[in-house]
């Protein structure tokens, strides 16, 4: 058991293993995203209240879910790195943070754009949008802290501590923002909350969510491999790999 973990956690082991894993995730991501998009854009019926503008849901909700999962993934990687000193976990964390921030931005942007036809304004201090905005700042903080250290290992460990502190705070932030929102804006119409969605509407949404997750995993594997090449460039196996090509 420990041998397997050790092998998978070593940069070379991960590099080889992820090479075999990667194509499957890319294939699944492309398949799911294509089917989900076509189904969502072409075949899903228009919403009886919001018309065709509800089709934004197929990018808004997956992006928002993925952004939050990316932060949790970041914190899990941080724990693995700090406790077991597995460097690959930190490399994965360093590539998850920018993509998580990008997904948070997508969720915010699509939410704002969706707000125009629904609320008649670009920005409403809706609980979900507000917590996404705070999440974006948390991502920025982690990326900036990692970059501020000249010594890479200190930057890694500092960013890991901040990721763990952040993930403990996220539920507290989420609930306090929700509480604050209900206090100040009672019973606003929330875009993503609907009584019951027919299957032909939520099925494509499910496909899109799965597709986003597969895309995220595939991209993280790909960029972690890049990061391994960058940080391990002096190791013998990397040099043999380069010479062999």
């Amino acid at each position: 058991m420990w041998r397997i973990i050790h092998q998978f956690g070593s940069p070379k082991g991960f590099y080889d293993f992820s090479a075999r894993l990667q194509p499957w995730f890319w294939a699944a991501a492309v398949l799911l995203l294509l089917t989900g998009s076509l189904w969502g854009l072409l075949y899903a019926p228009a919403d009886y209240q919001q018309g065709d503008s509800f089709r934004i849901i197929y990018v808004h909700v997956p992006a928002a879910l993925l952004a939050q999962s990316a932060f949790v993934g970041l914190a899990v990687a941080a724990v693995i790195f700090l406790v077991w000193k597995i460097k690959v976990a930190d490399m994965a964390a360093s590539v998850m943070a920018p993509f998580g921030a990008a997904m948070t931005f997508v969720a915010l942007f699509s939410g704002a754009v969706w707000g125009v036809p629904t609320w008649g304004t670009w920005w409403v201090w809706d609980a979900r949008l507000t917590s996404m905005l705070i999440l974006l700042f948390l991502f920025f903080g982690i990326i900036a802290l990692r970059g501020a250290f000249t010594h890479r290992d200190s930057g890694s460990r500092a960013a890991s501590v901040l990721a763990i502190v952040g993930v403990i705070n996220i539920p507290i932030i989420k609930y306090s923002v929700e509480w604050w929102n209900t206090l100040h804006q009672p019973a606003t119409f929330s875009v993503t909350e609907r009584p019951s969605m027919p299957a032909e509407m939520w099925m494509p949404l499910l496909l899109m969510v799965l597709g986003f997750y597969c895309f995220f995993i595939a991209l993280t594997l790909m960029r972690t491999r890049n990061e391994i090449l960058r940080r391990e460039s002096n190791k013998r196996w990397v040099r043999e790999l380069v010479r062999g090509q």
């Binding site: 705070i134 903080g141 900036a144 802290l145 952040g166 507290i172 923002v177 604050w180």
Partner: peptide
């Protein structure tokens, strides 16, 4: 400056209550 970027988001729950 970095300190305020790191800490301010975490201050929000305290501010709200």
């Amino acid at each position: 400056v970095l300190l305020s970027l790191l800490v301010l988001p975490l201050y929000i729950p305290v501010l709200i209550f």
